[in-house]
Structure formats: structure tokens, C-alpha cells
Design a protein around this nucleic acid. Structure first.
Lengths: 340, 340
DNA sequence: CTGAAAGCGCTTACAG
DNA sequence: CTGAAAGCGCTTACAG
């Protein structure tokens, strides 16, 4: 079908090897004259190297996996800020002449299958629980450069890129305390399995302690991330905990639901209750009132993920610690002083 | 590194061919006894076929490209409903033992490069302009099964899956007219290049005509899709076209911006002006007031895309016409009778 | 600076 | 039902 190295070699009157060297930019090995001649023929004939042949013959595939959990029969769901990070990583990797394979992982063994069957050079693990990262064995991974995003796993096999979740919570809760709040609730999904949530919780706790506010476990609620779940929680807060004047939430979607639930129960935001979200999703500025939230450095996450992977592929040593991206507070309209 | 067909063959005391036949499920060619024995060894040794070798030796790669325009230096941006469709397609394809390669396309030639270098069996084109699909040549495509989503290109090389954009506009505008509106504006991105927008515009026009409402070109505005753009347009409408009582918009994000712009200019939605969006994105039900909009059949789009591609790969004839998915109106809070 | 040989792990097409 | 041969398009490692 396509033009091959052999065709080019025949037309140029040289060996396969020489064409290969030219195509792969091994400048030193070919004279300028033949190099130029071969390049011209490559252009003319529209030669496109076969990636499968390269992957098979060489020791690299220039292929990076994007592995995402796919529970059972469900289709992949990727939250908006992850989509953004993926888009940015794709550009970086494309620029470096790598390709991206998107793969849902339903059973754990599928990680190994994906890595091995396509001979992946690297893989980014998006949205896995820490415990799943923990369980990865060297035998299953081989030499693949693995980056686990937003993971707090201790598994040395995976490089880690994440936001300063602890610090983000500190920012949010300090802001609320500075506004005068003392009874501040925490709402997020269960954090037995997710370090991200646990860190945000610990940040919340620390700032309370720093400010001499007694920690009240009743103010900590496990709420799955979702608008409906948030709405229900907002109504619950209004009914059961009217003393609460502020809520720190681990996701914008949840926060938006909470705002709506509070409003539906007749409480105004931020007049009666302040709410702070997390992620600074686009949606945060479309809702009414606009959401005060913690913003992550998405471009930084994408760039660091690619950088770590390339360093690893280049044989550099594993960094001593996880790469942590800075966060910042975005003040909008859902946080204000508590009612007098 | 890994276990190969050869290893399995040696251990089972048979030839490569026999193992290959077993692994590929060619039942008829191997006796039940040897088949079972080989399967056991395959399991034990954790054999995983090399996809690159298969792709190189066979006539199929079981690899499908997901091609997305990537303008210049920009990173990929994929709108939320496309992300959802991608997630659903991934599951379908995974179930059929296909893999997905995500690739941004900055220059047109990159389409061919992607198809050829990875020997793709098929590709889904997401978000390309009709004119770009038009320009695709058979020589560049080869035998690859191509599905262009939301395209109105006439290029017979691409199979097409799209929503009933004309019908969606009809639903929206009929709804507004039934509520009593007569001065209905249209807002969407320029439609010289995008059939989707043109169809929605034609649907709008047709329903106006059906109802004896004179078409007023001044009521048609070109507005790029974006919240800020919508907001500016909303303010413009309030200032310059106070006679308009309803706006039909080709995207939810735009509609939400328009609602905000109108509100910022002191006009209430839907009290003074009704607004209808398009897509039924999640966000449509999070904003205040909740957006009335046209919903697409996302699961249908994903399923039909995969089905068309598989039919094509199985050698079936190209369908006579594009596959069109049904749409439906979702009534929420932004459309009401015009002020008395 | 250039090239001949071997091999990556499979499938295809054929012979028995 | 089973297998020996050829080949997919490249790279590696080496020799000249």
C-alpha cells in the first residue's frame, strides 16, 4: 500500500540503513549530499514510517497510554478539568512525536495488558484510587514510565503529579475564618481511598486548630460528588445544622448543588451561609451566585506530567518526592461574612 | 521481555501456527484437546499478544483514531458532550477489542500521517469543518473506515453521524411561537463552514415562515460560542433590540451567556425575554434560571458511529444517507410567554 | 560515511 | 487437524 523504506532506498540507490538514518535524523552518519537527496525523495513519494514496524523492531513505541478507570459496564467519564489536562498533554506529547492511546480499565489486569500489548513507553493513570496504584507490581509494569495523577500512593513504581490539596483547603478555610466564620462544615466523598480528599480534610482540620476552633466531627459529611447529592446535602444542612454558617466542599459540582439545596430550603448564599468549592471549573463562574473556589494549575499539571515522563524515559532517576502544583483561591460571590 | 507465541509453542510442543490459531479463536482449525492445553499454558504464562506485530503482519490493526482539530499551538479542546460521546465509544470499541488513539490535527496532512503510520483500521473525525472533510482524498485515506461526526460534507469517503439539527431548531422555535413569541432572534457562530449551524438556522427560518412571521435578517447574529460572547450579545440585544422577546441559540454555553447579559442589562429571563439553548449540557440545569434547551441523543451517536464503522470494516456497502439521531426539547425555566 | 545480516513477533497462504 | 516457509517494515549491532 504505502511507500516503504525499501522503495526510497531503491530510488535513491542506497541501502535501507542509510534511508533509516536520514529519516531518524542521525545526522552524523550520513553525508549532507545523500541526506538531502534522500529527503527530497521522501518528500516526493510521501513516505510515512510504519509505527508498528518501528515499535516491533526498535526498543521504543513512542506511544503513551492514557488509562482511565471504567467501572464495569459503564462508559468512561472524565471530569472537565481532567479533560483539559488531557488536551494539554496531548499537545505536548504530539510536539515530542509521541502518540496517545486512550484506554478504559475495567479489571486491574487490563493495565498490564494495555502496557504490554502495545509496548507502551509510558502511561498516565487518571482517576485511580490510591489503593489501586499501591497494588501495581513491577512485574506487571516492566520498564514503562508511569505517572499517577492526583495520587497519594506510596508505590515507588509510579511517579506522582498532584495539586497542593492540603494547601488548597488551608486557603479556603482561612478565607472563611477571616470573614468571621467559626462553624464551618466539610463536605466531600469518602476519603478512605482517596488521598486527595483526605489531604483537603487535613488542611481543613489544621486551620481550624490554628484558629482555636474545636473540631466537630458532626460537621464533616460524606457526600458523593454530584449536583443532586450536593443539593440534598444543602437541604440537610439547612434543616439539621442551621448553626453552620459556611461549607467547604471538595468539588465545584458539589458546591453548586449545596448552594442550590440551601436556596431551596430558604437559606441564602452567601447571606446566611457561605460556600467554597474546589477546582475552579468553568461552570463556577456561570452559576448564580458565582462560586468562590480553589483553582488548580492545570497547565502545570499537564506540563509536569509530560516532563516527568520524558525524564524517566531518558533514564533520569526517580525524583525523591511527588511533584506538587500550586493552587490559588478565586474569590467570587459565595463567601461573605456570616450573618450578624 | 514478555512471553511470545514461540515460548508457548515450545512449551506445548506444537507449532507457532497452532498457538496463533488458538489465541485467535479459530476453533475449527485445532482439536479441542490441544486447544485446551494451549489455553492453559497461555493463562499460566500470562501471554499477551504483541499488537504491533499483529498490526505489521496482519491486515488489521484493531486501532481506531480519534481525530480532533488542534489549531496551531493550541491544545485540544473538546466540548463536554463530545467528551461524553467519546467515553461511550471507547467502551463499545473496547468491548469489540479495538483500541483508541487520540490525536490532535494541526495541519491537514496529519490526518493521512496518523492513518498510515499506525495503520489505523478506522477513524472518527470530531469537530472538523465540513470543508475540511470535503477536501479529503481517497489517496490520503486508503481503505480506512472514516466517520465524520456532525458533518454535512458531501464527501462520499466519510460516513456521517449527526443529530437532526434542522428538527431541533424546529422544536425550539415552535415552542417559542406556541408560547406567543413573534420576534425571535437567532444567535450562533458563523455558518459558512458548519452545516450544523446552517441546518439549525434553516429550521428556524422554516418555522417562522410556516407561522407567517416575516424573516428579519437583523435578528440573526453571528456570535462565537463562549460565555463571554453570549453575555456581550445579551447586553447588545437589551440595548439595541428591545423588541425581541425570544432568542434561539445554537449552544447552551452561548445561551447561558445571553441570559446573563440580558440580566446584567436589567432584563429578566424569562419575564422579558425567553432563551432556548442547544445540547442539554449538564450545566443547563445548574444555572439560574434553568435552561430550556434541545437535547441530543448522545448514546445513540456513539453507538451509531461504532456500528457504521464496524459495518464498513466488515465490508458492507456505504449507507445511502447520513445517520441522523433524534433530538428532543427539554423544557425548563428560560422560556415563557412574552410580556403582555 | 555506508551497508549486509539478523531479528522483532506475529499472520498469511499454502501444503500435507 | 497441524506445520514449514515467507514476509510485514523497520532497527540494532556490527563490519568495513
Amino acid at each position: 500500500m504505502g511507500v516503504t523504506l525499501k522503495d526510497i532506498a531503491a530510488e535513491a540507490g542506497v541501502s535501507l540503513m542509510t534511508v533509516s538514518n536520514v529519516v531518524n535524523g542521525k545526522q552524523s552518519r550520513v553525508s549532507a549530499a545523500t541526506r538531502e537527496r534522500i529527503m527530497r525523495i521522501v518528500k516526493e513519494r510521501g513516505y510515512i514510517p510504519s509505527a508498528s514496524a518501528r515499535s516491533l523492531a526498535g526498543r521504543t513505541s513512542r506511544l503513551v497510554g492514557l488509562l482511565v478507570p471504567a467501572a464495569g459496564e459503564a462508559s468512561l467519564t472524565i471530569d472537565p478539568h481532567t479533560v483539559e489536562v488531557v488536551g494539554m498533554m496531548e499537545r505536548e506529547l504530539r510536539r515530542l512525536d509521541y502518540h496517545l492511546m486512550l484506554r478504559g480499565i475495567a479489571r486491574r489486569e487490563e493495565i498490564t495488558e494495555a502496557l504490554r500489548s502495545w509496548n507502551l513507553d509510558g502511561a498516565v493513570l487518571l482517576g485511580f484510587q490510591d489503593s489501586e496504584i499501591d497494588r501495581l507490581k513491577a512485574a506487571a509494569i516492566g520498564g514503562v514510565a508511569l505517572v499517577a495523577m492526583d495520587s497519594y500512593s506510596a508505590n515507588p513504581l509510579a511517579l506522582e503529579v498532584r495539586s497542593d490539596d492540603f494547601g488548597g483547603a488551608e486557603l479556603a478555610v482561612r478565607h472563611l475564618i477571616a470573614l468571621g466564620h467559626r462553624r464551618i462544615a466539610f463536605a466531600g466523598p469518602g476519603f478512605s481511598a482517596t488521598g486527595v480528599v483526605r489531604e483537603r480534610f487535613e488542611g481543613y482540620r489544621k486551620v481550624l486548630a490554628e484558629n482555636g476552633i474545636a473540631f466537630d466531627p458532626d460537621l464533616v459529611s460524606t457526600v458523593d460528588i454530584g449536583h443532586a447529592e450536593g443539593e440534598a446535602h444543602g437541604r440537610w444542612l439547612a434543616a439539621e445544622r442551621p448553626d453552620v454558617t459556611a461549607v467547604f466542599t471538595t468539588a465545584d459540582l458539589l458546591a453548586i448543588g449545596v448552594v442550590e439545596g440551601l436556596a431551596n430550603a430558604g437559606r441564602s448564599v452567601p447571606g446566611d451561609v457561605s460556600v467554597v468549592g474546589y477546582d475552579n471549573a468553568d461552570i463556577a463562574s456561570y452559576v448564580t451566585p458565582k462560586l468562590t473556589t480553589v483553582a488548580q494549575d492545570l497547565p502545570g499539571k499537564a506540563a509536569e506530567t509530560v516532563r516527568l515522563m520524558m525524564d524517566r524515559l531518558a533514564g533520569k532517576a526517580r525524583p525523591e518526592q511527588a511533584t506538587t502544583l500550586q493552587v490559588r483561591l478565586v474569590e467570587r460571590e459565595t463567601a461573605a461574612p456570616p450573618p450578624a
